[in-house]
Nucleic acid binder design. Structure first.
Lengths: 195, 195
DNA sequence: CGCGACGTTGATTTGCCTCAACGATTGTGG
DNA sequence: CCACAATCGTTGAGGCAAATCAACGTCGCG
């Protein structure tokens, strides 16, 4: 399967698996096709899988008590996506995880990953290192939210992920950055008239 | 050293090190006493250590272009603290990390940790699992910041860390939760008059 | 073709900030 | 050990960034 190679290539950026190890890993992987607008996690259900995006795009979001949506994560190719809190604690999710495009994901069950990590040092290292990076990045986002204005956060996103803006509706970007779609529209107008 | 035992006890909640392994780990640990108001990380300097708080309290914070402080993390006993982004990437820090009380920390150098993790499966597992939890928690905080009002975030903190409020000045709590000290004072007044 | 989601724009509102002034508490040097 | 300074928390007045509400054009899709 060429989807496996994508994930294996990613893993080999951090550690070097031998054939035997690759086999053990791929044996726990399930390749799944997901249609646009389909949910892979929803509130009330435990997030069972670590999902690697081989193709497509997803977002995870919360619907608050007033019915408003707040986007926690936007994930494209080569990222993992889930209600991570639910996955780690194996308790019911609070988030939706929804496909933004027709997608292909590689799914690995929590117990299988934990089992393999406890046996395979290199796999443990892979997840340790990548999670450390994700965590560091998450801290950076917290910092942006605390210290920057809406316009600055938007420009920061444009700078880091220029292509995302073309793939993802503006209202979702807005809910990711923490402001209303109407205000996003006003920011864009302001920026256009500046340049 | 009894400080070692504290960390080893923490590690043994997740994995079981044998004597040999404990020895290798403690051999890279440096115990350091830090005085109140002393900095262990500052902007411009690479964050060299993973710092385990054995006793005391710390915070990491950013000083923005207008001179305002934004608290990223508050850490007490049993937590690790640093400019984590700087530590992971081994690039110059942007944050200050400051002792809020006279403290004792266990310091481990980046290269030593990486070296040990690459050899010791169990240590790798310890950091993998704890970082995954920290990451899940960080996501939760991002979500709170996106979806809750100032008052709700304050109540959430009170609920989770009732003791922190007595150890840490209110202005620091405010800058952690993302609002001004004056506004915090008004929230508290409102809450008192309600009960 | 027609409906529903998306983006835009303007008017109004609001949650939180800023600034300033004042006690209370803490820390510090003489 | 006291005195004075510095820092902290409180309170009120005024202001601003972003939200809300509503109306309208546009586009994609069934």
């Amino acid at each position: 399967m060429k989807e496996y190679h994508q994930l294996l290539a990613n893993i080999n950026r951090y550690v070097t698996l031998d054939q035997e190890e690759e086999k053990r890993l791929t044996s726990i992987i399930r390749t799944t096709r997901i249609r646009r607008r389909q949910f892979i996690d929803q509130p009330g259900y435990v997030s069972s899988y670590r999902n690697y995006v081989a193709k497509g795009a997803f977002r995870s979001f919360l619907v608050d008590s007033e019915g408003k949506e707040h986007t926690v994560q936007i994930a494209v190719e080569d990222w993992f996506v889930s209600d991570f809190y639910s996955y780690i604690t194996q308790t019911p999710a609070t988030l939706f995880v929804e496909a933004l495009e027709d997608s292909v994901i590689l799914q690995m069950e929590y117990d299988d990953i934990e089992g393999l990590c406890s046996q395979m040092h290199k796999l443990s290292e892979y997840f340790r290192i990548t999670t450390e990076r994700a965590f560091a990045f998450s801290r950076k986002r917290t910092l942006s939210n605390l210290s920057k204005t809406a316009e600055e956060r938007y420009l920061e996103l444009l700078d880091r992920y220029p292509n995302i803006v073309n793939r993802v509706p503006q209202k979702i970007i807005a809910s990711y950055l923490g402001f209303s779609p109407e205000f996003m529209s006003k920011i864009r107008k302001r920026l256009v008239s500046k340049s």
